[in-house]
Structures are given as structure tokens and as C-alpha cells.
Design a protein around this nucleic acid. Structure first.
Lengths: 246, 246
DNA sequence: CGGATAGTTGAGTTATCTCAAATGCAGTGG
DNA sequence: CCACTGCATTTGAGATAACTCAACTATCCG
């Protein structure tokens, strides 16, 4: 099952992941097709936290789907500056555009222990050419991706640090709620300030200041890798410029 | 030919555009298919400079293709802050994701007089469902779009003002060169500092300072809406952090 | 010529960064 | 149970890139 060669090393079993039997490609809607498709074998594997699944610039022989755990996709500039492009939640393709790129345009790194599935890219492509409903679905995912990236550009270009932080938290909250991973407005939150900083174009220190502001205003509670949104309305307010320089 | 109802008003004829007989969808590769496709009528129209072709939030009944002239796609935040997402050159779809969105996710405004074509979105969609090679091509365009947007995010998140300006100029140069619109490293350049600022997440004044630096360093020449790249190597250098605080 | 638009320049302000030290917290091993 | 180590976070004090505002100049276009 994990005896794959060349690709990211599988890291043995993790009890937190072992039990999971959920659909590996929930977001795709490809899920049933993939599993029925005879020429499309799914290999599964595990990786521990802080491991790289894909390396920017390398040839991309496989496409990865996250089954369990969090990861993020990012690029690094020549001098080491890092920009996180997206946080990846269970059920997501590692990159929507990946099936069509011969090389990894970005790197992917795990935040938590992760169970993943991978598919040979060429086989996926030929299947896509035959099965137009699958292609259409994938295209729709690309469109959603474009939409999200554009929002992100507006955030980075024109929003303040506080707005960016608030919007990041809200965005993750909404995505996790759709997956049923939220209870009492609280959820697992494996991000470090460093990750938020690299996603938001800020410094970890400044992210920390914004978080403290939100915490002392009783808008969020963040401890022990758990985030709780205490005052959703106020957070939405902050996300739209309502909490500047206070 | 221009008697369309409801959509952006056609603005009469402009001699600069009248003569153009180039393919309206060059970038798409859809071009031959579109024109052959019986159920896919192309209407063409004209718009003057500074006119809006699409309005963020409105229902999208048609998909637009730019035939001649420049435009840009942008979003505005509640308080009026503006972020430009892309500059649109002849041959481009107004937005790659547009065929799949019921509403305009962004606005489009012309920079120069423009000739455009438009297609009824529903008809395009049903054609896409029948013609998988067209869908595949469109998907590939989406993938390219994602790639560009991600680069843009890295720019906004982690690059300095000088790097951003240099990269914008280089990017436009390369895109225009592919279209044969560059001569002696010089090309038409209808952008105001205001537009560059809104694309780069900066202030027009600060963009002006960066341009002046490039100009006094004899790296670019910019006058009379013409941009010439005098020292391409130095500009590439500047685009990667080689000209800070000088 | 005049009026609108775009660009320049300079001075003062601010958001965010950098650097460095202090604090807290979690896991490890004795 | 307690020190020890390695991270992550907090706090503070400058430094700086980029912003704001306002006045001035240049350019375009009728």
C-alpha cells in the first residue's frame, strides 16, 4: 500500500489517521468516478507533520489528494522569502491545476500528520479526455480556485493587516464548517503565526499583535491549537475595516 | 452588427479599430471552432477608452473577448479601494473563468478604445459540453490563469515596490512580444501610474518614484504613452531585488 | 488659450518590519 | 516529579518602506 518508489517517503502508520475511511476526493465530486475507473488506481500513503509532499520545480508524475490532516501550498523566492498560496483541508487536491502541469509550480508541506492518495498524472489525463463529465467538474474546481485566488490578491493588495488576519480566520472557519469540523464555533487550528504571516504577506510578530488585539477584545480564543470564534459579528466587522488602530 | 440590447453600449466606430481583421479569440485556440460552430454566434462591438464593459456583481449573460485595445479586470471593496487583477490584451477572454460564472466576479474597464466580441454564455456552455476539445482548451487556459494569479500573490505578499514595478513592466513586455507588438524593445503603454498602483497594491505616487528611479538609471524610457526597455538585463536584476534603496 | 488630466516634488506620518530579549509551553529523560 | 531542551509567542524599541496631503508643473485636447 505504501511501497511507492521515488515519491515522498511514507512515514509509517499514525493511529490518528488509521481509522479514517472517508472519501478521499470529496471536494472533487470525482470520488465515485475515480474509484470505479478501472485504469485509475489510487495509491494511499501517510506523511508526518512538517514533511514536504511536493517540491516546487520538480517533475510531477502524480497528483495528490489530501484525505486527512492539513497542509499548505507555497512558493519560495530566490532569496528565501516564502508565500503561502493556500491551506489544504481534507478532501482537496493538492493543487487544482496540478493534473495539467508537467512540473510542480509550488511546493506542498504538511501541517499535521496526513493521509493522502495519489494518482498517476498521465492516467488521470487520459481518463479526463474520455470522461467529459470529470473534466467539466475539474474545470469548475479551477474556476473556484481562480475566484479564491482573486480574493486573495485583493486582500494582499488593498487590505490592512487586521482585515487580512480576520478574513483568514473567517475563511477557514467557513470551509471547516462546510465539512462539519466545527463545534460551538471552535475547531482544530494547527497554524503557527509564521504560517499565517506567510499567507498574509506579513511578519509573524505583526500577526501576533493582531491576534492579541482580537483576543483582548474577546473576539477569538486561541489556545492549545484550538481556535474559537467568540464574537462572529465583531470578527466580520474587523474583517471589513471596523477594527483599525483601536 | 452593434445593435445589441441591454449590454454595454456600443460607442460608434473608431477608425483605429475599424481596420482590424485579426482573429478575435487568438489566445483561446477556440477561434476556429467558434467561428465554425453554428449555434455560437459572435456579436462584435466597440467601446471607447475608460468605459466599463462588465460590472462586478451583475448577472453575466455574455462572455466577452477583446479583439483590439487594452482593458483591465478589477474588483472594488466596500469603501472604494480598488485592486486590478489583470491587464487584458487583444485576443484575451475578459476572464477565463467567465463562462462558468453566473455573475461577474469582477468589473472590466477599457484603457484604450476597444473592439470586442461577445457570445451568449449559455450557448457557449452547451457547446463546451458537446465539444470536449474546446472544454479541454478552456481548462488549460484556466490553469495558466491560476499560475499567473499565484505569481501575482507572491509578488504582492513578498516583493518590494521596486520588484513589483519591474516585474509588471517585464511581464507586459513579454506578453506583447509574443503578439508581435514590440519593436526595438518599445511598445504602446496606455497605463497610468494609478493603474499600476492598483495592480501592484501601491500608491500612484510611490509608483512614480520607482519609475523615476528606473528612468534616471537609464533602464527604461517612458513618454508619450510609449515604453522602451533600454536595459533589459538591469530591469531583470531590479525585478529580483537588485535595485533596492539605491 | 483654458480646463482637465497626469505627473512631480517635498515634508510629515504611519503601518509594518527588524532585531533582541523575555516569557511561556510541551515534550524528554533522568 | 523536576530540570532541560526546543519551539512558539509576547513585548519593546528603533528603523524604514510606503502612505498622505498639498502645492506645483507638465501635458494633452478641444
Amino acid at each position: 500500500m505504501t511501497g511507492n518508489g521515488g515519491a515522498p517517503q511514507s512515514e509509517g502508520k499514525d493511529p490518528r489517521l488509521e481509522a479514517c475511511g472517508r472519501c478521499p476526493a470529496r471536494d472533487l465530486g470525482l470520488c465515485p468516478s475515480l474509484q470505479q475507473e478501472p485504469g485509475l488506481p489510487l495509491e494511499t500513503g501517510f506523511a508526518r507533520a512538517r514533511r514536504k509532499l511536493c517540491h516546487q520545480g520538480e517533475a510531477a508524475s502524480h497528483v495528490f489528494i489530501l484525505c486527512d490532516g492539513w497542509a499548505f501550498r507555497f512558493v519560495t523566492l530566490a532569496d528565501g522569502r516564502r508565500q503561502i498560496l493556500d491551506f489544504l483541508l481534507p478532501g482537496q487536491l493538492t493543487s487544482t491545476a496540478a493534473p495539467f502541469s508537467d512540473y510542480h509550480e509550488a511546493s506542498v508541506q504538511t501541517l499535521t500528520p496526513v493521509r493522502y492518495a495519489r494518482i498517476e498524472r498521465q492516467k488521470l489525463l487520459s481518463t479526463l479526455r474520455e470522461r467529459d463529465h470529470m473534466l467539466l467538474r475539474l474545470t469548475e474546481l479551477c474556476v473556484a480556485d481562480i475566484q479564491r485566488l482573486q480574493d486573495c490578491i485583493a486582500d494582499l493588495g488593498r487590505r490592512t493587516a487586521m482585515e487580512r488576519v480576520a478574513r483568514l480566520l473567517l475563511g477557514l472557519y467557513e470551509r471547516l464548517e462546510m465539512r462539519g469540523a466545527v463545534e460551538d464555533h471552535a475547531f482544530e487550528f494547527p497554524l503557527r503565526q509564521e504560517h499565517m504571516a506567510d499567507a498574509l504577506g506579513l511578519t509573524p510578530i505583526h500577526v501576533g499583535r493582531m491576534l492579541r488585539q482580537l483576543r483582548t477584545a474577546r473576539i477569538i480564543r486561541l489556545q492549545a491549537r484550538q481556535l474559537q470564534l467568540l464574537d462572529l459579528a465583531a470578527l466580520r466587522e474587523a474583517a471589513d475595516g471596523g477594527l483599525e488602530s483601536a
